[in-house]
């Protein structure tokens, strides 16, 4: 009996979302009175024993080079073997890019009820009920899972990782690994920038910025804050900014601690992508912009005057002026 946490890596490094999943899984294991165990696939460049700090007591490491690149089909079969061998009753994933590939597959393979996009620990007093976001963050649903094995995919940025002390026991797990059918030919990373999906602060620009040549305003503030940059749909549609920066209903849905929207009116479709942000700041010269209704803080003013002053104040605060 255990809670098994999938510890997702990128090129041998543990992803931020995995720390959240570990802390969540460890809390859940304590709640159920069972052990928290982790599974790592492929070569690892980090000290796995040190992950004990996040409450994981044992880590099953399947160090097979066929697992160095992501293939949801191959990964699922390996994790299923670990679940079977360890008798895990709950499997925790991050609902990130890889989790969305594996968790549903594993659910179908094990006939285990899946809650994708969980935002809180399960209620286990009477059954097993997990809260998740629905209607693109406009509501939540409590999902009852009725199967012996349960799978939870935790929404990124919805659970704070907690660091304690402890060392995990790392054991090599001998699994049957299929040859991957997916051949990864290249990886393009936007270097030196904070990945949008993992960022705790996001600065976002809309049509109010008038043109791509003005994006320095957004980038300077983002740099001062250590933030990622994003944009509204119209901005991506006219190619002022790349598509992968588009947040909203049909773009990326994010949940940072702080979302700063500059020159974005706040259409309902945009809000659907950002309404899970903990704090929303809106800067817009139109006091009637609907976004102000969803904001925690706001400035009614000209972005071209206001934003550089905010950047200066942030630099001063951080002592980088």
């Amino acid at each position: 009996m255990s809670v098994l946490i999938f510890i997702d890596q990128a090129e041998g490094h543990i992803k931020k979302a995995s720390y959240e999943a570990m802390s969540y899984g460890a809390k859940l294991a304590a709640q159920l009175g069972v052990q928290a165990e982790g599974v790592v696939l492929g070569a690892a460049k980090e000290d796995l024993a040190a992950l004990g700090k996040y409450g994981v007591q044992k880590i099953h490491h399947v160090n097979n080079e066929a697992l160095n690149h992501f293939d949801a089909q191959v990964f699922t079969k390996v994790i299923a073997q670990v679940v079977e061998k360890t008798g895990a009753q709950v499997v925790v994933f991050s609902n990130n890019v890889d989790g969305k590939g594996i968790a549903p597959r594993l659910a179908a393979r094990l006939k285990a009820g899946l809650v994708p996009g969980a935002v809180a620990l399960p209620e286990t007093g009477n059954g097993f009920v997990v809260k998740k976001n629905v209607f693109s963050g406009k509501a939540f649903a409590n999902i009852a899972v009725n199967t012996p094995i349960k799978i939870i995919a935790l929404n990124p940025n919805s659970f704070k990782p907690e660091e304690g002390s402890g060392t995990a026991e790392v054991v090599a797990f001998n699994a049957t690994v299929d040859a991957p059918k997916v051949k990864v030919t290249s990886t393009n990373k936007v270097s030196g920038e904070v990945p949008l999906s993992e960022a705790s602060i996001v600065v976002s620009g809309g049509r109010g910025l008038k043109g791509p040549e003005n994006w320095g305003l957004i980038e300077d503030l983002a740099k001062a804050l250590g933030a990622a940059t994003a944009c509204s749909r119209p901005v991506a549609d006219v190619h002022w900014r790349p598509h992968h920066e588009h947040v909203g209903q049909t773009g990326l849905a994010i949940a940072p601690d702080l979302y700063i929207a500059v020159g974005i009116s706040g259409a309902i479709q945009h809000l659907a992508g950002v309404n899970r942000s903990k704090v929303i700041v809106v800067i817009n010269k139109d006091p009637e912009a609907p976004f102000f209704k969803a904001a925690d803080y706001g400035i009614v003013g000209d972005a071209f005057e206001v934003v550089p002053k905010i950047t200066e104040a942030v630099k001063k605060l951080k002592g980088i002026a």
Binding site: V129, N142, A144, V282, A294, Y297, I310, E312, A313, V314
Partner: peptide, 29 residues
């Protein structure tokens, strides 16, 4: 059928926006 919806809810309403004067953006920070 492996899961069932036990119930829905709406997130708590925002307390309302706190506006900072445009001539004092440092206050926002």
């Amino acid at each position: 059928t492996l899961t069932a919806i036990a119930g829905f809810g709406l997130p708590p309403a925002k307390a309302g926006v706190k506006l900072v004067p445009a001539d004092n953006p440092a206050e926002l920070v």
